[in-house]
Design a protein around this nucleic acid. Structure first.
Length: 574
RNA sequence: CGGGCUGUGGCGCAGCUUGGUUAGCGCGCUUGACUGGGGGUCAAGAGGUCCCGGGUUCAAAUCCCGGCAGCCCGACCA
């Protein structure tokens, strides 16, 4: 392909508003352009990268028995009503009417569609297991898209769905696809860690996320360097702490003026935060009031609390609601609170004697509060968010936390979508629910992560497997331009794809752009190289090394080992 | 949805505080000359509803009000 065919030119200045280095380079290298919030165009170079990634996805999905399909982007609302998600999901599900005022939605995932197909297409146990996947657009009206391609509203997802007779069958496919995911990220040159995760809105009973560790990530994962424990902070637990043994002593009311935060309380009373309990006032989506108690030095993990009270969603209580249960913000505690609120206590608090808690009266706290004696817990559960440095639940070594981007996830859904009629007739003649699994990879997000991972100060350094072209050919001067056709011919006839800089720009401009675009092999042809016996070749990943003179006839053989990871011959553009 | 920041030729920015000439600068673009291996030099050009709407004023890029858009933090989110 010739550079004069490309739409979009490289940028010398970093566009305003692009924060992360990877996103800056995707813009500067003319890979993508933003159209609206969370909505992007892929320019020719970006499209080539995307095509490469998709090819790897197809190969790996096919390798574990996947059959590619294409499911619609626009769904009648009825399908989502039947699964219950039409009402369960908030405004991120885009709803609209067609010309006959029939309600529709834009696909934000495709479980419903696969389940609907399974209902009509699968009748017998002989038709299971199955694994279908697609590479499709999704639209999620996210309240806050950000980070360029990291968090989009319109995005491309590789989503796959397994259909099985029973959980054992699901486990088998799940493990196989887990392995395929590891291979996909390896081939794309992106280091990830697989962590256990919350199932979220998908429902189901087990999930893993494939996380790329980066400070721009929006998730926090908890890692143990000794034993390999790795979980999303939403579900992570630390080893149980053992509070000092101490006999309960009588509770007393103390004056604590202005101590309406844990920080001020510890200052006023001269005690460490570990000796305090704090109350958080939450309401469930089904209208229950929840008073959660964690130790003063710890953060509430809302995912854990939601699980403990079996709530779909939680929100903070309003001041009126707090007042109605008889509590006082800043001085709140379960002591003396009426039965309108469900009291949920972190297990560490439940075992800790003589804590300081609020008195539900402005300016007063209670010393020596003991669970069971001074108030009753309706539920005792692990509610605390894991902090770095806490001991690992498996081996006791100090845990580490890292920011990460979720580039892929896999879910064991189980039978929840059987409600859409996804059942089969078993070998025993009985109707049984199909057991489903769901498997996603965000293609754009994966590219964004690779851009973060694979660059230097001059531009992208794409892994050969997904680079837009194998070779970036700089044709310098009339002699270089004149000789470039033969070089392209030599490479393309060997199955190598080439981007030719045929713009007639000066050497410096061509070199700078080649480094920005980041193809693995950079070849220069010019009067000088011809006089030296061929072309100059060097690797993008090794910019410091002197280029090597290679005869045109030997060039393809020189290039090939450096682009071995490329798997598909792309059609030449002509 | 809350908080903060920003909207000025294709890109990056100045000007706004304290209203007043033809709204500037760098890059890019066009034409010509020179140059020709790391974003070269010189010259001549093209290109602008100063985000939108309203208001104040003799006069608004500039001040006021209201929108819209983008970015960041938070809430939210597979």
């Amino acid at each position: 392909m010739r550079m004069t065919q490309l739409l979009g030119s490289t940028l010398r200045d970093t566009p305003a508003g692009a924060e992360s280095p990877g996103y800056q380079l995707l813009l500067r290298g003319a890979f993508v352009r933003q159209l609206g919030q969370g909505i992007f165009s892929f320019l020719p170079l970006g499209w080539r990268v995307k095509e490469r990634v998709e090819e790897i996805l197809r190969q790996e999905m096919d390798a574990v028995g996947g059959a590619e399909v294409l499911l619609p982007l626009v769904h009648p609302a009825e399908v989502w009503r039947r699964s219950g998600r039409y009402d369960a999901i908030g405004p991120e599900l885009v709803r609209f009417s067609d010309r006959r005022t029939r309600p529709h939605v834009l696909a934000l995932t495709h479980e419903e569609i696969v389940a609907t197909l399974a209902a009509s297409e699968v009748q017998s146990w002989r038709q299971l297991p199955r694994f279908v996947y697609q590479i499709q657009l999704k639209f999620r009206d996210d309240p806050r898209p950000r980070g360029g391609l990291v968090r989009l509203r319109e995005f491309t997802m590789k989503d796959g769905y397994t259909l099985d007779r029973d959980p054992a069958g699901l486990d088998e496919q799940y493990a196989r696809i887990h392995g395929a995911y590891v291979e996909i990220f390896r081939r794309c040159g992106l280091p990830v860690v697989a962590v256990s995760a919350d199932v979220g809105m998908m429902g189901g009973y087990e999930a893993h996320e494939f996380m790329y560790l980066t400070p721009i990530g929006e998730d926090t994962i908890v890692l143990c360097d000794r034993c390999g424990y790795a979980q999303n902070r939403q579900v992570a637990t630390a080893a149980t702490l053992q509070p000092g043994a101490e006999d309960p002593v009588p509770m007393e009311r103390v004056e604590t003026p202005g101590a309406d935060t844990i920080e001020r309380l510890t200052a006023v009373m001269g005690i460490p935060a570990e000796r305090t309990a704090k109350a958080l006032f939450m309401a469930t989506s089904d209208g229950r009031m929840v008073l959660a108690v964690v130790r003063g030095d710890m953060q509430l993990n809302e995912t854990k609390l939601a699980g403990a009270v079996r709530a779909a969603e939680l929100r903070p209580m309003t001041p009126e609601e707090i007042d109605a249960i008889g509590a006082v913000p800043g001085y709140g505690s379960p002591v003396g609170v009426g039965t309108q609120a469900l009291v949920v206590v972190d297990e560490l608090v439940a075992r800790s004697p003589n804590l300081v808690a609020g008195a539900n009266e402005a300016g007063y706290h209670l010393r020596n509060v003991n669970v069971g004696r001074d108030f009753q817990a309706d539920v005792v559960a692990d509610l605390a968010a894991v902090e770095a440095g806490q001991p690992c639940v498996q081996c006791g070594a100090p845990l580490r936390t890292e920011r990460a981007v979720e580039t892929g996830n896999i879910f064991k859904l189980g039978t929840r979508y059987a409600a859409l009629g996804a059942t089969y007739l078993g070998e025993d003649g009985e109707e049984k629910p199909i057991v489903m699994g769901s498997y996603g990879i965000g293609v754009d997000r994966l590219i964004a992560c690779v851009a973060e991972e694979c660059h230097d100060e001059r531009g992208m350094v794409w892994p050969a497997s997904i680079a837009p072209f194998s070779v970036h050919l700089c044709a310098l001067g009339d002699e270089g331009l004149g000789a470039s056709d033969a070089v392209v011919q030599a490479l393309e006839s060997a199955g190598l794809d080439v981007l030719v800089d045929d713009r007639g720009e000066r050497a410096g401009v061509q070199f700078a752009d080649a480094e920005l675009v980041g193809c693995p092999v950079q070849v220069t042809v010019s009067k000088r190289s011809i006089a030296a016996g061929g072309v100059e070749a060097k690797l993008r990943a090794d910019p410091g090394r002197e280029p090597e003179i290679v005869p045109v006839a030997a060039l393809a053989a020189w290039v090939a080992p450096h682009v071995g990871g490329r798997t598909r011959r792309m059609r030449p553009y002509r």
